[in-house]
Nucleic acid binder design. Sequence first.
DNA 1: TTGAAAGCGCTAACAA
DNA 2: TTGTTAGCGCTTTCAA
Lengths: 336, 336
Amino acid sequence: MTTPGRPPTMEDVAAEAGVSRALVSLVMRGSPKVSELRRARVLEAAERLRYRPNAMARSLASSRTMTIGVLLNDLHNPFFADIAGGIEALASELGYQLLLGTGRRHPERERTVVTSFVDYRVDGLILVSPRLDEADLAAAARSIPTVVTGREIDAPEIDTLAIDEPLGVRAVVSYLAGLGHTEILHVTGGDGAGAATRLQCFRATMEAAGLGPGRLIEGDFTEEAGVQAAQAILTRGDLPTAVFAANDLTAAGMMDTFVRAGLRIPADISLVGYDNIYIAALRQLSLTTVDQPRAAMGRQALELLLERIDGRTERVRRLLEPRLIVRDTVGRARSR
Amino acid sequence: MTTPGRPPTMEDVAAEAGVSRALVSLVMRGSPKVSELRRARVLEAAERLRYRPNAMARSLASSRTMTIGVLLNDLHNPFFADIAGGIEALASELGYQLLLGTGRRHPERERTVVTSFVDYRVDGLILVSPRLDEADLAAAARSIPTVVTGREIDAPEIDTLAIDEPLGVRAVVSYLAGLGHTEILHVTGGDGAGAATRLQCFRATMEAAGLGPGRLIEGDFTEEAGVQAAQAILTRGDLPTAVFAANDLTAAGMMDTFVRAGLRIPADISLVGYDNIYIAALRQLSLTTVDQPRAAMGRQALELLLERIDGRTERVRRLLEPRLIVRDTVGRARSR
DNA sequence: TTGAAAGCGCTAACAA
DNA sequence: TTGTTAGCGCTTTCAA
């Protein structure tokens, strides 16, 4: 008999249908080796009792959770939200659940989040631009299939999915150089691993183009960082001809600040962002930037992960191609 | 003995520490009634084996999952991402996990997501602007504590948290009316429940202000809807003096389209958004809009939910105050 | 303060 | 095709 108040169990359904619990289990999992008669009877009983299988119990018994842990920096940044959206879209198609956590760029906090994912025995881990060190990442990956995006990792048990950073940065610098820019300033993304790569590429490309090391201002991928960087530039009074911001958010903050200060873009200063989040396309910003296929990144990260879950052991490192999106914030270098 | 490959269980720790499994359980849950000697011994053993409790097993045995199911429309919309961010911040503070799903505005899809949350026996449900009908919502709420945001629900087992819609809309309309606007067009949010309320308030306020029913164009809360609405207005050639868009995204799309068509804002047409997402503050848009405290909404939704989980049974319906944020997209009505 | 034992609701051999 | 029987790893009485 079913006790009202307590949700019905498989046992209740079995009793109601007059069959064994195991048979109900088979039916619930859509096994083909159940007679139509019984299947119908079980389904009816389940319907009658409004039975729903308990995913926890199922997971415990089968040691599969159909759940993926996703670690993001923060949800407010549309860049990460878009990646999460891409993951979510495919996950829901395939019946996977998403356990979501944010690291807020603190390695310790990330460790906590990953640990709790591990506690939940998620089937896999997608770590988006994690700040954790390689040792921690490798440790996690040894117990659970793991894909890292936005950063390259050496550990053989970790798949990585990243943008071809040199390609994107080179596109920016050579585009700027082609328009006569020689004094190019880069506002960095700070201490994040992705930022480091971008910075390094910037330096290398500048040198290769014979433009010297380039000027730098430290940032942290936020709009606020852009505001501060722009203020610093204005205060210093020594304007570069072009600015390459670590991302669109930062570029937006800079543009805002420059415009408030009376500068015209691109007449007085050229500006390039990175990411191509949707605000970049707004006419009011019309920001020249580098497109990163974010939803595709999310989707492919999950694809790689599922391959791992299915048993692949060779490491995969996928590189996605960024594209320069030319809009209206870059002009010819002003003459000095 | 611990089998390498399999993660250690409580049993392994008990053996390693020379105590019973139940005692290990007590220690892991921080029970005070364990002698310091044993506690230390257990903790050491756990450390040695790198033991981590299995959350699934714990949930199954205790029938608490420490997990909250969060249903959003979609992650790409920063409005929802911000709410999710607010929820996540508090959840992580309190040791709760977030199971995340998106409904993409399809009731059937929402039902699927909610069902899978129920399958996981999450401790609570936060449904952000759900499209599901009240019967489905009430059904879910009967088995799991539920908070709905962005929409008012009658069911007594559901707490709701919403913006004081009439207040926000009234602020917009009376502000516009005060500047001499009489032909005000509203671009709606379509079939969403939130949109319906906003629309209804718009109509009521317009009538109350003696401005007639107001003109309407149907939208769906997207930027694209704004583009299309603006194009429709331009094609028709009959410009209202002011447009009140259902949200900032839509307003951004409209502004973009108007500007591309050579209109000046607010000289030729005034524009008001809703939400105050961060793009509204950018100088290049500087959109007059209505601020909705999104992160606070997320946070409070979780607070209400936790009260329910702790046993509160009286219904709570909280109303948050929106604020008109005056920027630069509204001017005096142009003379005809 | 500690331990023994009975579940939590399900899956997964294996037998029938 | 169906049922039986062990678990999955933990919590929770209840005794000791």
